[in-house]
């Protein structure tokens, strides 16, 4: 009798457990879909708000007090300047630092400190980099609120991301390639330059593009550095004043007239297009590169 009762209890328990299991499965699917649905809603809503506003004039017009006359030309050019300068500053520095850490630094206190330091920098809020840039580049080095000061600030911001990605890619290069090169009498640098870097290039490229896409979307550090919302001309020189797309968007969002909201949505479409394209290219390179080694 007792055992029969026990069996029944266990059977009930199994039924309840199965029921809970199925319930969680539904919940899990729902959570995953919520994330994706929100993504679609975000993009859909912004497209509805802004797509009608985009025409050639919107891209080539200068900023204006009147929403229907305003364009993103100066901001777009500012973003382009920032992108190019940041690439030239952050890419070589980040890759060089990563090569040092991966190939030269001896395991010990020094490299441990470097490692903790980089991991910490990656977690520093972007606005803090803005404060650093404001004091060092804008004031002490006297660059003013220039496109160069902004690019230097963003370079420091994305440096940890580039270093981490480059180190991962170098680590993934098979040891046999290194051995083969050394066995042929190549020096350390020759091996790195001719063998390891080409082999790791896909992964490095992915990391660099992803970090640059982050730089293009950054707003807060550039506001702190002093990038302006209203710049009448596109920068022609690294020391010129500048605005960037995200700041233009921020400025338009804060205006009360509805026309500017439409402008903001339209500018967001352009910004998202740039961001997603960069992400797409990065993912493409990552897949291509992973196939090569796995």
């Amino acid at each position: 009798m007792v055992s029969e009762k026990n069996t029944n209890q266990i059977m009930n328990k199994i039924r309840v457990n199965r029921w809970k299991d199925q319930l969680f499965k539904v919940w899990g699917v729902a959570c995953t879909l919520i994330g994706l649905i929100l993504l679609v809603v975000f993009i859909g809503d912004i497209l509805i708000d802004g797509i009608m506003r985009i025409d050639w004039g919107f891209v080539t017009d200068l900023p204006s007090r009147k929403p229907e006359k305003a364009g993103v030309f100066t901001a777009l050019m500012g973003s382009l300047w920032v992108l190019v300068l940041t690439t030239f500053i952050a890419f070589p520095t980040g890759v060089a630092a990563a090569i040092y850490l991966e190939e030269y630094a001896k395991k010990g206190r020094f490299s441990a400190i470097l490692e903790i330091n980089i991991s910490n920098l990656a977690g520093v809020p972007s606005i803090i980099y803005g404060l650093l840039g404001l004091e060092i580049f804008v004031r002490i080095l006297g660059l003013g609120a220039s496109v160069l000061a902004g690019s230097l600030t963003l370079s420091l911001l994305i440096l940890p991301i580039i270093i981490v990605a480059t180190r991962e890619s170098i680590k993934a290069v098979p040891k046999t390639i290194r051995d083969a090169s050394y066995a042929l009498g190549a020096s350390k640098w020759q091996t790195i330059w001719n063998q390891i870097l080409p082999a790791a290039s896909g992964g490095i490229l992915t990391g660099v593009i992803l970090s640059l896409s982050r730089a293009v979307g950054e707003t807060a550090p550039l506001i702190v550095v002093g990038a302006l919302a209203y710049v009448p001309f596109a920068p022609g020189h690294p020391l010129d004043d500048f605005s960037v797309l995200p700041i233009q968007i921020f400025n338009w969002i804060s205006r009360p007239q509805h026309g500017f909201i439409e402008n903001a949505a339209a500018a967001i479409i352009i910004l998202l297009l740039v961001t997603f394209m960069m992400n797409g290219v990065a993912v493409y390179y990552r897949n291509k590169w992973q196939k090569k080694w796995k």
Binding site: I10, M11, I14, R15, N17, R18
Partner: peptide, 8 residues
């Protein structure tokens, strides 16, 4: 069949 019961 309940696989959980089977596996017990």
């Amino acid at each position: 069949i309940h696989v959980e019961e089977l596996r017990k």
